[in-house]
């Protein structure tokens, strides 16, 4: 029996990239279903998706990347998917690596597979300052959990059913990647990485402008610490979502 696999594509003002992203998925990862979560884009994203007949969910209020991705996990949970992966709508992520990531997840050794740019260091590797930030989070997560994650900010993360159920209930509103990695490790899950190449975004702007970088660093650093301290305990949540 083949597994139901879902690609979650968060999209905010990605009119210039969304077609290429979806076509890339159809071509290179045909065994996957996909769902676009349009976070109230002000551009033509919604109209393009409608015209092309893409599977698209439109958030009625702008809610942030975390809330958009979580809507995807909620969708995955409701429709009984065995595995879900986030692929950003800006076309940075290469669908050619998805099968390989799914194979790694199917081995059952890890519950989250991250597509990492920094194992083989090929493709688009982000600018100097950002790489410094990424390195800091690698070090910070190592100090907090003892786990080595070379690309903790990678949006390309594949998870199985348990984690889908958990994420559907508990997911940060913004900048979720490093924080949720710590949360999962804290809950006793393991995380693996697969080398991937990423592309330069084709058009539009990144969600993290230079002015927000400082806020990002501070917020995510504290968020990781909080996740390590196990704050989710206070919400009465456990890992056993299934």
């Amino acid at each position: 029996m083949s597994k139901k696999r879902l690609i979650i594509i968060p999209a905010f003002n990605e009119a210039g990239n969304i077609v290429r992203t979806v076509e890339d998925i159809r071509e290179n990862a045909p065994s996957f279903d996909y769902v676009i979560i349009n976070d109230c884009s002000g551009d033509d994203t919604m109209r393009i998706c409608e015209k092309k007949g893409y599977n698209c969910i439109n958030l009625p209020i702008r809610s942030g990347i975390g809330a958009a991705v979580q809507a995807g996990y909620l969708y995955a949970k409701r429709y009984g998917y065995d595995c879900a992966i986030q692929v950003d709508g800006d076309g940075q992520h290469d669908a050619a690596f998805l099968e390989e990531m799914a194979d790694e997840l199917d081995k059952g050794k890890v519950q989250m597979v991250i597509g990492s740019r920094f194992i083989e260091n090929q493709g688009f590797l982000s600018s100097g300052f950002r790489r410094l930030g990424i390195r800091w989070f690698t070090l910070w997560i190592f100090l907090l959990t003892g786990a080595r994650i070379t690309d903790p900010t990678s949006g390309m993360r594949m998870v199985g059913r348990d984690v889908i159920n958990f994420f559907a209930e508990e997911y940060p509103k913004d900048y979720p990647e490093p924080e949720t990695a710590v949360t999962l490790l804290q809950l006793g899950y393991s995380i693996g990485e697969i080398p991937v190449r990423m592309k330069h975004r084709q058009s539009g702007e990144s969600s993290i402008s230079p002015t927000r970088a400082v806020y990002y660093m501070v917020k995510v650093t504290i968020a990781c610490l909080m996740a390590r301290l196990g704050y989710e305990r206070f919400f009465g949540l456990t890992s056993s979502g299934s």
Binding site: I37, I57, L59, P60, S63, A67
Partner: peptide
């Protein structure tokens, strides 16, 4: 946030 997501799925 949850209401927004639910409405989107319902839509």
């Amino acid at each position: 946030k949850r209401l927004t997501q639910e409405i989107a799925l319902l839509n």
